[in-house]
Design a protein around this nucleic acid. Sequence first.
RNA 1: GCCGGGUUAGCUCAGCUGGUAGAGCAACCGCCUUGUAAGCGGUAGGUCGUCGGUUCGAGUCCGACACCCGGCACCA
Length: 675
Amino acid sequence: MFKISLPDGSVREVPAGTTPADVALAIGPGLAKAALAARIDGELRDINRPFERDSQLALVTSRDEKDALELVRHDYAHVLAEAVQSLFPDTQITFGPSTDDGFYYDFAPKDRAFTEEDLPAIEAEMRRIIARDEPLVREVWSREDLIARWQAEGESFKAEWAAELPDAEELTVYRAGRGEDAWLDMCRGPHLASTGKLDPQAFKLTRVSGAYWRGDQNNAMLSRIYGTGWLNRKQLDQHLTRLEEAAKRDHRRIGQEMDLFHLQSEAQGSVFWHAKGFLLWRALEAYMRRRLDAAGYAEVKTPQLMDARQWEQSGHWGKYRENMFVVPDEVPHAPEDGEADDAPVLSGQADLMALKPMNCPAHVLIFRQGIKSYRELPIRMAEFGCCHRNEPHGALHGIMRVRQFTQDDAHIFVREDQLIAEVRAFCELLDSVYRDLGFEDYAVKLALRPDKRFGSDAMWDKAEAELREAVLQSNLSQAIKDKFEELPGEGAFYAPKLEFHLTDAIGRTWQVGTIQSDRVLPERLDATYVGEDGQKHRPVMLHRAILGTFERFIGILIEHHAGRFPLWLAPVQAVAATIVSDADGYAAEVVSALTAAGLRAEADTRNEKINYKVREHSLAHVPYLLVLGKREAEERTVALRPLGEGAKQEVLSLAAAIERLRREATPPDLRKPLD
RNA sequence: GCCGGGUUAGCUCAGCUGGUAGAGCAACCGCCUUGUAAGCGGUAGGUCGUCGGUUCGAGUCCGACACCCGGCACCA
């Protein structure tokens, strides 16, 4: 007999062989029907898996949404795999987990990868499997039997996986269906009791893609099918609506609609900033420059091209050479008379220069000019540095991932005793900047030592602990600290990093800010300062950025605000739109007055109806329209109309309107407390 | 770089099984002097991503390349 404790504090004695489903039925048929799985001593388990000892039991129903979604999505993945093998019998199965909004499964097809055209048929087969209500039964297998089974079935990926699972782990298989036709997959579980527990209308296969076996590009390319899965149809519909709404916030789309920037193949991966986009950039850059000035940074500017030997010495050449743009240090040879037009203009023998992929070596070179005293540290050296990296083609993405970008970069040279306080101060500066820009919520991660790295283990132990300590000591909100996570193996080759991530419109997260504590580069580039003891010491170098790159950060800003920027960032802050041509002269006056007050304003005196102008400027997300008719021109007032459908407007004197806008357009760091 | 999909007018897109291109919006011209999210009429605009092939004939079929999109891998 086992003693089973329930959440209400009651205890039931049950004989061996009893399952959570039995307990649920004993409590009531309603609960038995609703129960999807069980939490046994905190662990999620199959509802039909018998108790093994005295246990705490909590039955999981769809009300426990997080658990329920996880279970359902995992089951959808299994049903997907069963459906694919039923339609494409020669396809090997590999692995298929749940994701944040659904599931995927990786297959090794016999001859061709799946395409989106295959999805409707697979969905239909999945619905048939759900309709058959196949029981999902857990079985424990021996490793030998399991490997033999997979080999017999031609499932080489599963066989490989089975052979490598740790000895301590029980090897389990789930049998879907009945009798000879049952379909098997190796899986840790847990699963629902049967496929019929899934809602056949609450999932959708969304896309196909390639994916490497075990995430390693040296392995086979598998064919992955993604789906989204929910507890019911309503949730699915809501999710699909969210995706549609998110697509409207895509920075590439808004960038075009608002005339902010464009990209074209002649400069792939580099942004053509249009006038309006660059106004936004300038507002952001001016803000960052003020914040850095106030925080004790000194701004520098360093060369775009440096001798390749410099990159060898810093260690970047060895690791990143193929991602650097390299140019020969040579004057091209001018064609001479009688020489073929296609004669080489470069000798191929010249020394190499490289476009800088980062600013840090140049900053060390500035640091090394003259002798530095311990009294001068910390030295905070900032640069809005324009860098080039030859990113893999498949990595490029709008303006979020580009080949030419400008960082709000800085390197802080500190003594060991100053390090934690500097990191902490950085975290607090970053938090303040993100809040000013409208981001209350972001993720902080600590990327730990990678396999291939410079420096001793002792150095890494110390550096990782310092960053961890600094972030936890800082004044970041508890909500952000609660989400803090560590990423093994993700650090840079010379230093661990704190990473600060923001989320884009469709839920992809992007690293923006970072800080890295580096003891390798000062060593390799021989940076020293004179200590109190008169001896030479190595400074620690903190590599740090808050926005990361202007390109990516502006992309995120666009999506976060859906193009409706706060007034201080909006490229065009106000448009003076006339109703009748009699107001044209007054409109010009209004725009001059706004411009003189430091506001970014334009006049729209086109021969169009006011309805048309309102609609057009609203779609362009212009924050304020100053509507000017005959009345306003005569009374020297403006009808101030904020962005928004059916927005309530106010008629103000021109001076009052300007004062209102000027005040609202003041960047957050320049606002006086009383404002 | 890898897998899959795509590229037609300034923008969004249609163009079935091959028979020398079409819509809406935008642009331009004209009318309307207009009061808060599209006033009306007209005109013009494309060597269908590039190169090559099949064919009497290619936007359409085949191949290569370029770029874009969705993932994977990468991200100093």
